[in-house]
Simulated scan of single mutants.
Amino acid sequence: MDRLFNNNWFLKLISLVIATMLFLFVNMDDFGNRPGATPIMSTEQIQLDEAELDIYYDDEQYAIASIDDDIDVRVSGTQSALTLFQVTNPSYEVYVDLSEHGTGFIR
């Protein structure tokens, strides 16, 4: 048994198997719920209700008649990326930049 663990090729093979298992564990979403499925990077969505909207515009020349200050935002990505987004300090900024636009009605 000691000769087996001292063999470089055996250790390389075991390392490759462990690395593959870790990769599949991190990158596969709901693999247990789909029998016989191949690893697929599925896209999930989360809803951010009433996110504060910042508006950048030339306030010396223009005025905004009406705009919602709070909006609903939908963020999509893989389940692992969304979980990381929710777990870490979600500091995000939602803004609209109107500094390049002139007068008129913009939709």
Rank of each mutant, 00 (worst) to 15 (best):
W9F: 04
W9Q: 10
F10P: 13
F10T: 11
F10H: 04
F10W: 04
L11G: 11
L11C: 14
K12S: 05
L13Y: 01
I14V: 09
I14L: 01
I14Y: 00
I14G: 06
S15W: 12
L16I: 01
L16M: 01
V17E: 06
V17H: 01
I18L: 07
A19C: 07
M21N: 14
M21K: 13
L22S: 10
L22M: 00
L22H: 08
L22R: 11
F23S: 00
L24H: 14
L24K: 14
F25W: 12
V26W: 09
N27M: 00
M28S: 03
M28I: 11
M28P: 12
D29C: 08
D29V: 02
D30E: 03
D30F: 02
F31A: 02
F31E: 02
R34E: 01
P35V: 03
P35L: 02
G36R: 05
T38C: 14
P39A: 02
I40T: 14
S42M: 05
T43E: 10
T43Q: 09
T43V: 00
E44A: 13
Q47W: 14
Q47F: 15
Q47T: 15
Q47C: 15
L48F: 07
A51R: 10
E52A: 15
L53Q: 06
L53Y: 05
D54S: 12
Y56I: 04
Y56S: 01
Y57I: 01
Y57F: 03
D58S: 11
D59S: 12
E60S: 03
E60W: 05
E60Q: 09
E60T: 13
Q61E: 09
Y62P: 06
Y62I: 03
Y62C: 03
Y62W: 08
A63V: 06
I64F: 06
A65I: 06
A65S: 10
S66I: 04
D68S: 02
D68E: 00
D69Y: 12
D69R: 12
D69S: 10
D70R: 13
D70W: 04
D70T: 14
D70L: 13
I71L: 02
I71S: 00
I71N: 03
D72P: 06
D72E: 08
D72K: 10
R74A: 15
